[in-house]
């Protein structure tokens, strides 16, 4: 399995696969299905300073090859997470990516300072891209200067490397990526969900109580691939790629686009065993592709020809 190992700032992963934040709770549910130590890492549900209940239901709606969700960052707050949710993870050989969110810069810094000191946490994932809360994410994620300022502040207080999770709901994602790289981000994770809506023909109202929700699942994969392909050529920090990954072939595609590791989100809801299944399929797929080590694939879609892609 050595041919699957990847090394990113703060993350020594035995394979490039991790469940994505918000799709894995704090791991307890999936630990009933398999040994979490098989995972390369795991991103836990977003932590905020105070407990949050989240949005009213219905919170999810199915779409063609995807789903909308507007959970609203429900979580028991950073203190409870550190006390009650993180300890059980120490029984696994599993680097933890702690996703953090907030309403203000002070919120983010407080959560970052606290949770980065927890021994189970390997890196932070700065969530500036949740589309489902009025405050607590996206307002930091659509303006490059605001995102950079927040990144700098969080970096200053965090005891662990900081990855910034980017929103696809921007006109120029490379500009966002360059701004947070310049501000000191150790890595990027991309993409968060795309803002969407569904309307019920019977009630003539949006299906989701929050009206809008974040679109995820296979439907958004081409968007993620395009954005990673573009951003990975512009930055020198590694990218954790995500967006509709549901097979080992998808993982290869993300790495060819320029991702150094790959997170799996919605597919966990369809099949709780999806992460270990993909991990077990990767070696054979690499062999078929004549690849000695999975890191050879990173950026392979643009490195081979050596020509820079057209900038947008």
């Amino acid at each position: 399995m050595k041919k699957l190992s990847v090394s990113l700032p703060g993350l020594e992963m035995k394979n490039p696969i991790m469940p994505a934040s918000g799709c894995f709770g704090f791991g307890k549910e999936y630990a009933e299905f398999y040994d979490l130590s098989v995972l390369g890492a795991a991103a836990i549900k977003a932590a905020t300073r105070e407990p949050r209940f989240g949005n009213p239901t219905p919170r999810v709606a199915e779409t063609h090859s995807g789903m909308l969700n507007a959970i609203g960052l429900q979580n028991p707050g950073v203190d409870q997470i550190m006390e009650n949710e993180l300890p059980h993870l120490q029984s696994y050989d599993l680097p933890i990516v702690a996703n953090i969110a907030g309403s203000t810069e002070e919120d983010y810094c407080e959560v970052a300072r606290k949770i980065s000191l927890h021994p189970q946490v390997s890196v932070l994932e700065l969530n500036i891209s949740c589309p489902n809360v009025k405050e607590g994410g996206i307002q930091f994620g659509t303006d490059a200067a605001t995102a950079a300022a927040l990144t700098k502040k969080v970096k200053a207080v965090s005891a662990k490397p900081v990855y910034v999770k980017l929103s696809p709901n921007v006109s120029n994602i490379t500009e966002m990526a360059l701004a947070v790289e310049e501000a000191g981000a150790d890595g990027l994770s991309m993409i968060n969900t795309l803002l969407g809506m569904r309307i019920d023909l019977k009630t003539r109202k949006p299906v989701i109580a929050n009206k809008t929700g974040g679109l995820s699942g296979p439907a958004i994969k081409p968007v993620a691939i395009r954005m990673i392909h573009e951003v990975s050529q512009a930055v020198s920090i590694p990218i954790i790629g995500m967006g509709g990954v549901s097979s080992a072939e998808d993982v290869i595609e993300f790495m060819l686009a320029g991702a150094s590791a790959v997170a799996i989100g919605t597919a966990n809801f369809v099949d709780p065993y999806i992460c270990p299944e993909i991990i077990s399929q990767l070696p054979e797929l690499l062999e078929k592709m004549n690849v000695n080590h999975i890191t050879e694939l990173i950026g392979g879609s643009w490195k081979e020809c050596g020509t820079p892609s057209l900038s947008r």
Partner: peptide, 21 residues
């Protein structure tokens, strides 16, 4: 309630409890 994962991971089907915070 509408469900996502069915196993408690996605937080789609939550309800408030009576007499709680």
């Amino acid at each position: 309630e509408r469900m996502g994962c069915g196993i408690g991971a996605c937080f789609a089907c939550v309800c408030h409890v009576n007499g709680g915070a």
